[in-house]
Design a binder for these strands. Structure first.
Lengths: 135, 135
DNA sequence: TGGAACTGGTTTAATTTGGAACCAATTTCC
DNA sequence: GGAAATTGGTTCCAAATTAAACCAGTTCCA
């Protein structure tokens, strides 16, 4: 077995993730979503404030501002000023937003599963174990 | 075993990779490298032509043009017209380029190892094999 | 109190990115 | 041979990204 270069693993892993996401980009666009926007939608329940989203998703605040603006314009998100702290904008999925979020994550899951399908069942569970351990 | 949505795994995995790479961005900059440029340098031995690099790294050709230009200007890369096919530019690491590439990948490896360290050596090998198969 | 420091979010401006069109060299095929 | 199709690489430009400066609301603390 060749020696393990972690940087090589990082790179392979990264390429895989990019290949998967770009393979669903077109279908996401049909739903009216950019890929980055999907991540925002998928994270809103857990982190309903833009500042939290930026921290959680590791994207800069101005980007969050932009994505939220577009998602709101598309009717996928509502925002209301938090009565506790007037600086904060509490975000909430609309029914349409929840639906499209679920469809989007289903697409991503399907695409990733397709890659996972190249592995045996045993290898799939092994991979899951390894990733869970690292996360 | 808990049921985990593949899209969720994708997302967590992505965040992990981004966190790792951004944690070394500053040190890479000290070496005179952008993160994308490091990937180019690290791949030149295996894929010495820009078109191959673009395909292999999943980045658009114009970006490769730019990175190669900067890496050449920095003295990390040399290019020579291929005598077999005058369209092709054969790329080659300079000694300085090889050194900085090794230092850069060492930094990335170190940062990623912090996470990989949660796996046994055998598991690390396994992970690499699985990722290569999925790519 | 009240002002200094901090936090949430936006705007601005500069940089980075990448699709499309492009040129030159090579290959294909009649 | 030579026109048509391909391939390698670059340039152009429009779109995406983001650091820096900014405003408004909140907290801290003398």
């Amino acid at each position: 077995m060749s020696k393990i270069d972690p940087a090589k693993i990082w790179s392979l892993n990264h390429r895989l993730l990019m290949a998967v996401i770009s393979s669903v980009a077109a279908e996401l666009a049909d739903l009216g979503l950019e890929t980055k926007e999907l991540f925002v939608l998928a994270e809103v329940d857990e982190h309903p404030y833009p500042a939290e989203l930026a921290a959680s998703l590791c994207i800069p605040k101005p980007s969050v501002t932009l994505y939220v603006k577009r998602l709101e314009a598309a009717g996928f998100l509502r925002r209301e000023i938090d009565t506790e702290d007037l600086r904060r904008h509490r975000l909430q999925l609309t029914p349409a937003g929840r639906k499209v979020m679920q469809q989007g994550t289903a697409l991503l899951s399907e695409a990733y599963s397709e890659r996972l399908g190249r592995l045996s069942a045993a290898q799939q569970s092994e991979l899951r174990v390894l990733l869970e351990k690292m996360l």
